[in-house]
Design a binder for these strands. Sequence first.
RNA 1: GGAGAGGUACCGAAGUGGCUAAACGGGGCAGACUGUAAAUCUGCUGGCCUCUGGCCUACGGAGGUUCGAAUCCUCCCCUCUCCA
Length: 414
Amino acid sequence: MGQGPNSADLDRQIEAMREGSVDFYGEAELRETLAKRAGTGQPLRVKLGMDPSSPDLHLGHTVVLMKLKRFMELGHQAIFLIGDFTARIGDPSGKKKTRPPLDEEQVRANAATYVDQVAKVLDVERIEVRFNDEWMGAMSSSDIVRLCSKYTVARLLERDDFAKRFEAGVPIFAHEFLYPFVQAYDSVALEADVELGGSDQTFNLLMAREIQRDYGQAPQAVITHPLLVGTDGSEKMSKSLGNAIGVNDAPEDMYGKVMSIPDSLMTNYFELLSGGEWEVDRPDFTAFSLGEGDPMALKHRLAARVVERLHGSDGAAAGAAHFRRVVQQKGVPEEVPEQTLGLGGEESMVLLDALDRLGLVASRSEGRRMVKQGAVQVNGERVADANAPLAAGEHLLRVGKRRFCRLLLETSQQ
RNA sequence: GGAGAGGUACCGAAGUGGCUAAACGGGGCAGACUGUAAAUCUGCUGGCCUCUGGCCUACGGAGGUUCGAAUCCUCCCCUCUCCA
């Protein structure tokens, strides 16, 4: 931008902004704003907010982060808002029940890791990072009353997740109504021109437009994005559902988790995660069902791209090697965590004790079950007796497919 | 403020005095199979043990009745619905 109103350039920008989105509200106004500002060098203020309700971001978050990246490439100002205040309310979006509120300490701990995780996808040096406690914490009760006077209960109840809960007789607590007000006010405080989010955020995002008007600002454009489905292939990706691929997952784990998505999800992942950076493969499932084509190779390609984005090409290579070796050939990973235990004067250690002390099993009862099910191997041999003795020396323990530990048993007193 | 309904394991949901560590479904884990950590099939899924058996803890909370309670009684807490 910057070379005066150029319609073709505007088209290109708008197109990039729309790519991969579900809805683009306020597109026409945004186009006008861009045209007006062309030549002034004044960038758009583009807001993306996340609540530090869990310490880990996952691939679902990267879908929107990639869009933020595109805005940066177009020369706009990215604002990453950490909802430290909102996390203590608990976002009701898409929830079938009330979220447990987090205490300040948890929120702070989670927030601390966010910027690092975002840095895996974006150049955080060029981002404005803000916390909404900055202005929300400073609000007086009368400010909050004033904010709440801008929207009606009936309109809040139109919102899908509230409506469903209300109808089903699932409790809705009054503080949950506060959430969209705060998120909307964030846009006022940040003077956002554009806000990005998942499609489950549509209500909150649109409400911000009205609140901004009430506070004398031009309403932000809103661009929503599809929600990435988790590795289970049915629910949206979420840490609490256990179907998430974390941004901080080790390359090997990340690679394996991508490999574990259902085949039918491959296209979707290619498209949503591309962020305009990958050419998108559209596998031919009809061919696969006829035994043609190579779905496995495609999935490997997807996994490699995902891991490469977050861990670089070395990570991708490591992930691929680990998968071939451990999963396909049922082998032992290249690097197995090592631990040393002392025998404390005994001749040997009972297998179950070792599993328990190494944390390879959740409880001793689980350990017994694992052994009974044939899930436990010592040095590549399946062991049927939980009380089998392990002599001093080195033992490679394996529980199930993925839990490994190299145990060094020492005779020294301990 | 009044009246009803309800709170069961990770989640949903049966069970209304002993046969219940609690049916069934989902989830999770394991084994088999497979191009895959997909799909499918089978098994397991509170803890602890000297383990084809035994012990401890558990059905919102606290007491009580009973040889014995998730199931009966009392009080308390929480949610939903209707009325005001």
